[in-house]
Nucleic acid binder design. Structure first.
Lengths: 95, 95
DNA sequence: GTAACGTGCAACTCGTCGGTTGCACCATAG
DNA sequence: CTATGGTGCAACCGACGAGTTGCACGTTAC
């Protein structure tokens, strides 16, 4: 629909996807099947989340042989930082 | 669902709701019927958006006689600022 | 070559979302 | 008192999102 900001916020609205961003930030890179071990859902569900994140420009993929490795884009890294800051901001405010 | 961050991002994912935030930021306060004049939808649709924003903690309401006036909370004002900054950030990056 | 692995695609279910209409309720203007 | 204006509530609809399963395809290991 050509609403980039809406795409990004929509992608960030899902907790599983925010977790994926966190995992990718820690590991640098991961495949869909690797991430499946961290989340309580099927590989295809994880792949869909990765596709959503990619469509929002937060993640990019590169196929290496028979596996596809995902990593955060620059925008994804920025949002990972902002999420950390927001989390601390909320904790400070709730306390 | 007890996912405050998800509530906020979900609320911000909709363009109409971001516009509502902008209008409230300009005017300080408004009713659902007033905002209906600015958006191409019915009053009840606007009221639903306001309820979503209120549930996310970005907006608060106060009933005065037969009308209900809405205004941004502190969190809502903060997000209005962040949205402006993000918009400029995107324009700079797209150019 | 063959078996196993990782992936992508398609179809399906189910719940939620954005939006509508219709109606009932309460406050105020006259 | 009556009419009108502003709300809120409930039911409904079409579309989309999250998740599942099943299967077919390409890549690697042996």
């Amino acid at each position: 629909m050509s609403d980039p900001l809406g795409q990004v916020f929509g992608a960030l609205a899902d907790q599983s996807r925010r977790q994926v961003i966190g995992y990718l930030s820690e590991r640098g890179t991961a495949t869909a099947t690797e991430l499946t071990g961290e989340l309580p859902m099927s590989r295809q569900a994880v792949a869909k989340h990765l596709a959503t994140l990619a469509h929002a420009g937060l993640v990019e993929s590169e196929r290496q042989g028979r596996e596809t490795r995902y990593r955060l884009t620059r925008a994804g890294e920025e949002w990972d930082d902002r999420l950390d800051a927001l989390k601390k901001h909320l904790e400070r405010r709730t306390r």
